[in-house]
Amino acid sequence: MSRYPRILPVGDSAFTVEFGATIEERLVAQVQDFEAVLDAHPIPGVRETVPSYCALLVVYDPQLSSAAMMQLALEQALTRMTGGVHLVGRLIEIPVRYGTGDGPDLQDVADFHQLSPEEVIALHTAPTYRVAMLGFAPGFAYLVGLDPRLATPRLATPRTYVAPGSVGIAGNQTGVYALSTPGGWRIIGRTSLVLFEPTRPEPFLLHAGDSVRFVQA
């Protein structure tokens, strides 16, 4: 019998609901399906939820719900899951300028895989990715769906500055930087879309669950 999904306490003000322990699109979909259940059937006392690759963190106000009541409500919510793998988000196209100053690591990624830069771009623009989670820094989007032929280790020494909008590869993940931060991902390109603008009604362009396609600008 599977040990998942399972509900574990995170101190006295949160639970994590785990669906597995691997990075797979199937688990990302389950996490987002479960979050959709909580959005459709809100549990009193829940302050916020944080989706990640294979778990949903549910933060609650212990003044409004006891741990036992929250765990029971989460168990009931799990029974409402449809089991269907469906896309809950929007499809967003991200234009990317690949290579040279915008993508200083494009050539290295190509060399690592004995591909041409054009072949790297073709492989990177082919899939439809899914936003698994935002984290590390405000608005940083972790995407699943990278072609395994592009999986590349992180830089040995992280850069102290990565420009906002940079598109990178780290292991079997690809991601987009929303803010200028230090970072160790291999930067292959950059978008001119503004991923984070606090004065917009929707400050963050990408949400967990969205589908993303990169197009060469």
């Binding site: 101190g11 949160a14 990075i23 944080v50 989706p51 990640s52 294979c54 778990a55 949903l56 972790y142």
Partner: peptide
């Protein structure tokens, strides 16, 4: 190291 997941103060 583990697969990244959500964090709150106190973790």
């Amino acid at each position: 190291s583990s697969i990244s997941d959500g964090v709150i103060a106190g973790c």
